[in-house]
Every structure is written in structure tokens, then in C-alpha cells.
Design a protein around this nucleic acid. Structure first.
Length: 139
DNA sequence: GCCAACGTTGGC
DNA sequence: GCCAACGTTGGC
């Protein structure tokens, strides 16, 4: 089981909107970056990820899971772009901010800390556990 | 709102 | 296939 992190500007697509989609989930469309797409291609059904608010908040606010495997992105005709569907699992009671990640030496190698521009990122199992612990949430 | 970092594009 | 120019992202 791999772990992931999905980044979104809350103005565009927020955690609340994700939660409102319920168990059916929603396409994580709009990704136009090969690295991010390749990460989505590698995802398995039921794998978990963090939901991160960029720009406003700059914090991990929820946990999601993959509800559909990689498929063509419905927002473009360009066959290069694909995406998975994700659904909200549970909120993070104590949102974990970017500052907190930077401050914790155990998270020094996190992609979020080192390459904040990548919109779909892998998270190591160790990092996953640390953030769940800080966030007060069950992974 | 600025700007640094990064990825992509396109001319050669 | 290289690299300069450009566009976008996202932290500050």
C-alpha cells in the first residue's frame, strides 16, 4: 500500500466540496503534469492520501482514498491526461500545516517540503504515520 | 501582489 | 537534442 498527497487550492476545490461528494467520490481532474499523472497511474483502489489546501490554509485537512483507477480526464480531449477518482474518508482534527512539516525533522524529506509545486505526490509510510500522529487522526 | 522555482514549448 | 523563452504554481 502506497500513500499519497493531493493538493488543491480551496478556492478551486476544497475539502468541504470533496466531503459533499460523499462515497461516490470525484474525479481529480485538471492535472497537466506528467509526474503527477504518473503518480496517479501508480495508484491502487483503496489507497489513502492526504488532502492539502495550498495557498489558503497551507495545511493537510483530510484523508481521502482512491475510489476509481486512473482513467481519461473528462475535462480535456487530450489523451495524455488521465486521473483517478478520490473520496473523502475523514477530516484531520488538528490540520497539519506546511510550517509544522518543515519544523519536524522526521518530515525533512517530504516532497511537500522540497517540491511544493508537484500537485500529486507520494508520501512514505513513515511520513504518513508522523502526520497522522500530529494531526490526531487514524490513518 | 511579487517573485523564485520549475516544467513545458518551440526554434534552431 | 539543446536551450532560451515563456507560463504556471505557490510560498511569502
Amino acid at each position: 500500500m502506497a500513500y499519497w498527497l493531493f493538493k488543491s487550492e480551496p478556492d478551486t476545490w476544497s475539502w468541504d466540496q470533496q466531503v459533499a461528494k460523499g462515497a461516490e467520490g470525484e474525479e481529480w481532474n485538471g492535472v497537466r503534469n506528467y509526474q503527477a499523472r504518473n503518480n496517479m497511474r501508480a495508484m491502487q483502489l483503496g489507497e489513502r492520501g492526504f488532502f492539502y489546501h495550498s495557498n489558503q490554509g497551507k495545511e493537510i485537512v483530510g484523508i481521502v482514498e482512491v475510489s476509481a483507477l486512473c482513467h481519461p480526464d473528462s475535462t480535456t480531449e487530450d489523451p495524455r491526461w488521465e486521473c483517478v477518482d478520490i473520496r473523502a474518508v475523514r477530516p484531520v482534527p488538528n490540520p497539519v500545516s506546511l510550517d509544522m512539516c518543515k519544523a519536524d525533522p522526521r518530515l525533512a524529506d517530504m516532497v511537500l517540503v522540497n517540491n511544493s509545486r508537484l500537485s500529486v505526490q507520494p508520501v512514505s509510510e513513515a511520513e504518513w504515520k508522523v502526520i497522522c500522529e500530529i494531526g490526531g487522526v487514524e490513518g
